[in-house]
Structures are given as structure tokens and as C-alpha cells.
Design a protein around this nucleic acid. Sequence first.
DNA 1: GAAGCCCTTGACACCGGTTTCCACTCCCTT
DNA 2: AAGGGAGTGGAAACCGGTGTCAAGGGCTTC
Lengths: 360, 360
Amino acid sequence: MTSSKTPNKSADDSDVNAALESGRRRATINDIARLAGVSKKTVSRVINQSPFVREETRQRIEAVIAEWGYAPDPQARGLAFRRSFLIGMIYDNPNPQYVVNMQLGLLDGMRGSGFELVVHPCDRSSPTFLQDVRMFIERQKLFGVVLPPSVSEDERVADLLRDIGCEYIRIASVPLDEEEHMIVGHDRLGAQAMGEHLVSLGHERIGFITGLPSFRSSHERRGGFEDALAKAGVKLDPDYVVQGAYTFESGLACGEALLAKTPRPTAIFAGNDEMAAGVLQAARRAGLTVPEDLTVVGFDDFQIAQAVWPPLTTIHIPTREVGRMAAEKLIAREGYEPGDPSRIIPYLVTRESSAAPKKV
Amino acid sequence: MTSSKTPNKSADDSDVNAALESGRRRATINDIARLAGVSKKTVSRVINQSPFVREETRQRIEAVIAEWGYAPDPQARGLAFRRSFLIGMIYDNPNPQYVVNMQLGLLDGMRGSGFELVVHPCDRSSPTFLQDVRMFIERQKLFGVVLPPSVSEDERVADLLRDIGCEYIRIASVPLDEEEHMIVGHDRLGAQAMGEHLVSLGHERIGFITGLPSFRSSHERRGGFEDALAKAGVKLDPDYVVQGAYTFESGLACGEALLAKTPRPTAIFAGNDEMAAGVLQAARRAGLTVPEDLTVVGFDDFQIAQAVWPPLTTIHIPTREVGRMAAEKLIAREGYEPGDPSRIIPYLVTRESSAAPKKV
DNA sequence: GAAGCCCTTGACACCGGTTTCCACTCCCTT
DNA sequence: AAGGGAGTGGAAACCGGTGTCAAGGGCTTC
């Protein structure tokens, strides 16, 4: 009777066990404690990997936990810890494929950790934006949040997070914060690769369509492109740079604008695939054949790049992998090593939309 | 001194108020009770809209709640209620735009309700699928789940949910469950509309590409199409029906197969836009011009329909609205009326990919 | 053999809400 | 004025975990 805590509990115990065994009730920490003949505090220690538990005791408890399939209640645990086991993704990126890939990546990185992902699209221009974000985080007592662009680039949000002491990871194309809060993408490298590709094909009069200026990636992509051109001794004529908005429609309009220039560019590099698809349409309306009359290239390598005609030469961005790294960094589990940054380096994908310019 | 509960609390009170006012601590139900001069039970009654509170008392408490911006802790509340305020979206639909639109719709319907959305993509063919779902729901004590296709069509999942007593809404193109658990889409109507459109243009030899047979929508779309043709006295030749997989690649392959038939169909109706984009590519490879040589139409009206050339005639499905209705139904708030089903009726969007067949 | 220390363990209060139970109003009847 | 019922609010237990702190046991050390 060493494990019995009160003299007349055995009758109750059998009732309790019956309820448990029939599956009518999930096991609680008290059940596990009782079944293992220890106090619930010790079970708690095992759950939280406290080193102050005798190996033999730990194994006994772990066996009982495994046998009954016990998992602690995140709400109760969260209540005591004063925080939840939820991770928020706060975003305003309008591209569905980016969003979904990012979500999948985050879930990859969270798998088996006991955390769950709560999604929170937002409108950065709303007057209540910061208050909404704060409410979201404080009410749910989020463990942490992941911020993809362009929310990641908003210092007000970062300040808020530091202020309320919420863990966060910012995903951006440039370092904006301490290293531990950043996953830095390599848009610049990707744009450089594209610049080299176009130059190597022999293009010299190239149009460029920027993304939304509120996204740092817009500037990085342009910058990387200019780097590559400069290195090859080709100059990017500012007159051939027009500002898009990362949308198909803006790509169409900007494409038409660029194609109206004299002389016409022999290639157009759009800041993302959506806009490149718009350029393809502009080219078609102008009676031009791609890539014979015009090279059109994009950035991101989302599905649209393959669905248009001709399929787009573009830069592949490993969004899902970026998400995985972000989640891993956020929860920083034991056995977590920093993650090889080379996993998220973008690369050129050559398809049929790019070719050498026609000889004059 | 009527509101003072213990004689020597006033000193403590000012400390507590200081902490509150400085924002160092969020208000709890005890603070609100103290500030309003009532017991926390009464505050709880107000929060939970109990009718047993004097109107005057209620207003006083609500004023204090508003003044301090108090919101009850979902974890503590959930712990006592034995359920969380989380809603799960369990899905295996591979289309990013569908997923994102559905999420947005669900969030629309949940806005201001205090619920949050936890996303849970899954693999229905995994051996641990049902166990994963069960674990997800039971651990988080989800308030309810929303099941879009094709998870919604899996009776094992519905059985599981009934078994563990979890609220759920199934989104599908046919009624599969009691009315209160269903949002029924109208794929059939949409496909009928497309059938009528093609017939009215004069097409009689029409190819059809089905979606994945594991999606009920595939059969409904085909069925609705056949209905419309039958009504017009046109027969759908089974030889001109090929099975796709809702992907671009499958659309390409199926398009090639259909265009190889003799005589060639004058129109191809693909079960979704992705496949229609594939058909466009097959047509181009075959040297055909759309819509002069071949009419190609899709279904869903996702963004790809506008980004390809020519832009696709398709059926618009109000996915986001469907999501909103699902969420509203799930949380069935006071003031909730069933929701006008006409809001989610699909409609034809005519673009440039459909035209009358050339005269022979 | 007693003191001192470390390793383990458990009792108890607490996280922030809800529910149960009960006592106390208040108002209306008799 | 007393009695009775409905309406109202408080104390304490509870949801399922965690923090704090002190106690028990085995070991070494003097």
C-alpha cells in the first residue's frame, strides 16, 4: 500500500480506472501520478524534462505515460506557464502561394513540438492595426509570432513585440534586427543570378519592373540586378525601370509602358512571376513573340510561372524551407542546430521565356 | 464601506491599481470585480450573458470592462469550460488559392467572436491520419472544426468527430450529413451554367476533363454539365471524357489526349482552371488558336484564369463567402440567422477563351 | 556517530476563469 | 407583520497543470 495516498481510495481508484480504460475520460496528470505511484509534481518534472528525477523513476513514469497515451493539457499548462503553445503567423502578403508555402514550412518546423499555428492576416494600413496585433498576442498569450514580409519590415510591430516581451522571427531580405530574430532571405543573390543570366544571353537593353516599394524585397531585387549588370559593364537605364505592385495587372500595365519605349527593350525582368505573366500578356497584345522578340523573366517560381506560355525563366525561392527555419528558430528545441543557411539560397530556373536577343 | 470586502484591503488595492494602470499587468476578472464592487461571479455572469444580473449592475460592470479593456483569458476560461476557443481547419486541398480564400472566409465569419483559427493540413492517405486528427482535436480541445473537400467527404472523419463530440461543419458539393453540419456548394449549378454557355455558343462535340475522383465535386461538375447538355439534346460522348487530377500537368496531358481524337472536339471543359491552363498549353503545342480553333473553359475563377492567354471563361465559386458561412454556422452566435444560401451560388464569368465553333 | 550536503520527492498555493451550493435580499401575498 | 418565492451575489471547490519550499534518504566528512 505504499502508493496509496489516502486509506479509503482503492474503491474510487477502480471507478476512475474504469472510466479511463473505457476511454470515457482522458488521462490527467493525477491519473498518471496515481498509476505510477508518485506525486503529480514528479510527473510534471518528467514532462518538463527536469534533471532532478531519478532515472528509474523517470522510466517508470514514462512507461505509464506511453501506456495510457497521456499528453498534458496545453491550456492548463499554458495557464500555469502564463503563455500558450500557439505560434502566430501575422502577415499581409497577398500572394496565396507564398502564404500557403510559408504555412506549410512553419508547420514542418513545428511538427512534433506540441505547438500549433494560428493564422492572422492583417491590414497594415488600418488605424487599429497595432492594437489588433497587440490584442491578438496578449489575449492568446502567444508563445511567439512569425512575421513574413511586409509585416516583418514594420518597426512599429517589432517595437511592440519587444515591448510586450513576445518572441518573434522576422523574415526579410535584409537584416533588420538582431540575428536571433531574423531569417534573412537572399533576394539579392537571386536577382544577381538573373542579371548574369540575361547578360550572358547577350541582353543589354533590359527593362525592369519593381515590386511594391513597401517591400524591401523590391529594392533588393533591383539592387542585385544592378549589381550583376554593373559587374558586366552593362548599365541599367533608369528610364527602363518602372514601378509595379507585384500584381498581374500592374505587370500588364508596366509591360505595356516598357514596350512602348524606343528603342524597345530586348528583355524585361519583372520583380515577381505575377508581373511577368502580365508582361507576357502585354507582349502578346503588342504582337510580340516570347522569347524570339522579347525575353521575359520573373522571380519566385510559383506555379503561375509554369502555367503561362511560354513557361517563365525565374528565380526559385524556397519559401517552405524558409518557413521551416523560422519555426525551428522560434521554438529552438533541444538538438536544434542553427540550420544551414544554404538551404534557403535561391537559384535560377531556366525555362522557355528567355533567349538571346535577335541580331540587329 | 459597502463595497470593501475585507477591512485592510485598501493599501493592497492601491498597489494593485498602480500595477494595472502602469500596464505592467493585464486586468483579471478579480480586478474588474473589485473595481466594480461586485464578486467575480457576477462579472462572470455578465461575460457569459447570464440573465440573472440586474440591469444596473450589468451596465456598471460593462463600463468597467470597457474602461480597462478587459478580456477574459481564453485559457482559463477554456480550462473551466473543458474546451478551447480554437477552431481548426483540417484540409488536404492542394490548391493554394482555395486554401487561402477559405481561411479568409473563416476568419471573416469569426471576426470579433474571440475564436482563433488553427490550420491543419493533412494527408488522408497516411496510416496515422485518423489518429493525427483525433490527437489534434482532443489535445487542443477544439471548439469545432471546418472540413473543406476532400476531407469533408471522408466518413471516417465525420464518425470520429461525432464519436468524440466535436462540433464540425463539412463543406461539400452534395449533402453528406445533417443540415446543421453542412455547407453545400452548388458545383452542379455552376457546371450546368457552363454547359448552357457552351451549347448556346453552338458547340456539340465537347471534351470534358474530370477532376480527381476522390473529390465529389468532380462528379458533380460532370453531372451538372451532362444535365445541361441533355436538356439541350446534346450528348456527351464518353469517349471525350478523360480523367484529370485537378493539376496543371494533368490538364496538359488530358488536353493532348482530347486533341488527338478524331474528330477533334470544338470545345474542352476542364474541371478546374488549373487544368484548363494545361489545355491551353496543349492547344498551343498542337498549333491551335484559342478560341478560334478551340474553346477552353475552366471552373473556380481563381487568379490563374486571368493570368493565362487568353483569359479563361470559367465559373466563379465564392470560396471566401462559403468559408464565412461555415464559420458563422459553427459558432452560431446570437443574432445568427442561417445565412442566405444564394450568397454562395456560383456564376459564369465570360472571358476570351470561349467562342462559337468555326463553321465546317 | 553526528553533522553537512546533494539528490529526490511531495505538500501546498496558485494560474484565471467557472460551477456548485447556499445565504441573503426584495417583493408580494396572506 | 409574518411567510414564501424568485432573484441576486458570495465562498469555496474545481478545471489540469506549474512554482515554491521544505523534508526525507543516502552519502561523505570530521
